[in-house]
């Protein structure tokens, strides 16, 4: 995929708007961003290929910091350095602005019941969206029987032993480069 030249101003505004919208529905933290970005950037707008998106997820696991840093990768793939910065800024803007307001007046809002209730309601929907995303990704991630075993091993390690995904990624790379 060629890197689009960002001197074209309308495109930067378009990119800002795309990622700002993603930030607007980024409720509940962390992994929610995966179904949102998958449906918008890959399925709907075709700004990223399925492979790029999955590989971006792997790369964001190799990186310290929040899962949401995936937007920086997406922005870079779409439009280079500027794209990365615009995407990151636009996506973080809504949530960060609200957090600033809450930081200022959190003592007055002793009752955070409302926010908690909304997050609780969203919880099952987000689980459903994550399952849907995993299902959509199956074709490009699972190509043979060995891959299915890999999924089970990784899932088991993460759930049962709380293994850091970074270690699993590194271990799989070593196994693949060395033995296959």
């Amino acid at each position: 995929m060629k890197i689009i030249n960002l001197t074209w101003l309308p495109f930067s505004i378009f990119l800002f708007w795309v990622f700002f919208k993603i930030g607007m529905v980024f409720f509940g933290g962390g992994f929610v961003i995966i179904p949102i970005m998958q449906t918008e950037l890959v399925n709907h707008l075709h700004l990223l290929t399925e492979h790029q998106f999955v590989d971006g997820l792997i790369i964001s696991q190799l990186t310290p910091g929040p899962v949401a840093i995936l937007v920086t990768f997406a922005g870079y793939c779409i439009a280079g350095y500027w794209g990365a910065l615009i995407a990151t800024f636009a996506m973080f803007l809504p949530g960060a602005s609200l957090m600033l307001i809450l930081s200022k007046s959190y003592e007055k809002i002793q009752n955070s019941n409302f926010l908690k209730k909304i997050v609780d309601t969203l919880n099952p929907v987000i689980i459903g969206l994550l399952i849907a995303t995993a299902w959509q990704m199956r074709k490009i991630t699972i190509t043979d029987k060995f891959d299915i075993i890999e999924v089970f091993i990784a899932f088991f390690l993460i759930i049962r032993f709380k293994t850091n995904p970074l270690l699993i990624v590194i271990a799989y790379i070593i196994v693949y480069m060395g033995f296959r």
């Binding site: 792997i58 490009i140 891959d147 799989y172 790379i173």
Partner: peptide
């Protein structure tokens, strides 16, 4: 490319384990 192909299944495990932990 081969290394990436080998690691891609982890993504499925990652997403499903996130769903599991949330639920």
């Amino acid at each position: 490319e081969l290394a990436l192909k080998g690691v891609r299944p982890v993504v499925i495990a990652l997403i499903l384990s996130a769903a599991y932990k949330m639920g």
